[in-house]
Design a protein around this nucleic acid. Sequence first.
DNA 1: TTTCATGCAAATTCTTTGCAAGTTA
DNA 2: TAACTTGCAAAGAATTTGCATGAAA
Lengths: 138, 138
Amino acid sequence: MNADIAEALRARGHRVTRARRAVWQALEDAAGHLTVEQLASRVRQHEPGVNTASVYRSLTLFSEFDLVRESRLGDDEAGRWELAHPDEHFHVVCEQCGEVDHHVGDLVEQVRDHLANGHGFRTVTVELTVTGRCERCA
Amino acid sequence: MNADIAEALRARGHRVTRARRAVWQALEDAAGHLTVEQLASRVRQHEPGVNTASVYRSLTLFSEFDLVRESRLGDDEAGRWELAHPDEHFHVVCEQCGEVDHHVGDLVEQVRDHLANGHGFRTVTVELTVTGRCERCA
DNA sequence: TTTCATGCAAATTCTTTGCAAGTTA
DNA sequence: TAACTTGCAAAGAATTTGCATGAAA
């Protein structure tokens, strides 16, 4: 819902504002990858007058808590944002129709293990993006 | 060397120019991930007067032949470029010291197989980036 | 010579920031 | 009320583009 973000904010001494709540809500509703512009436009449907700069500021703040994540998919020049789901997943992008799918699997786990055991590297994030042709566009 | 890029250009009806050769050379010498600005500065050491815009244009052209590849590593805002090595590899970025390592492994192959068999997805590129702490910065 | 590529500067796009005014605790 | 956030506009950074000149075929 909306309770968790309020809590998360308060817990770290930040204020719970209309703008921040609306940004969070929009991310939850979308459950996908949105550019800041797309996000801002959805935010304004619920909370008119929210400025794009505030969306950026909210996202920056949330990302400090690891609640959201930015990724650059395909050859897009704008960053895209999504909720930082706790389950590891990777992105599959069709270069024809632009659709982005999430795939959950143990591949990400494997990478983490591989690096920890062999190379002394402490993995924080794994970003795996696959581009190609989806079934429909093949 | 420098022969392959000349050939690749001619084969597609593009001209072999000083700027393009210098960009290619710089990418070969670096064998790493360079921002356009870094690349431009190295290019000018061999070929003074080459404009940054031309570096962008060369990279765009090369990427149409799949000879180079752009990747956004870490939370960097600028794109980084490298030669598109035929061998599959992934990037390991230390968020402390910023160092970027290449790891060659069969993980990328696994992803490709997984998607082809189960989901009818024809993979074109796999981009796998891991961020965390390297051994020295742990 | 004819066509393509470059340099330069201006234009775009994405993102960040300064500051006065509005909100939250 | 006091401190934090926002909106707005301007500033920045990265990348692209128009166009006249210069270089390659």
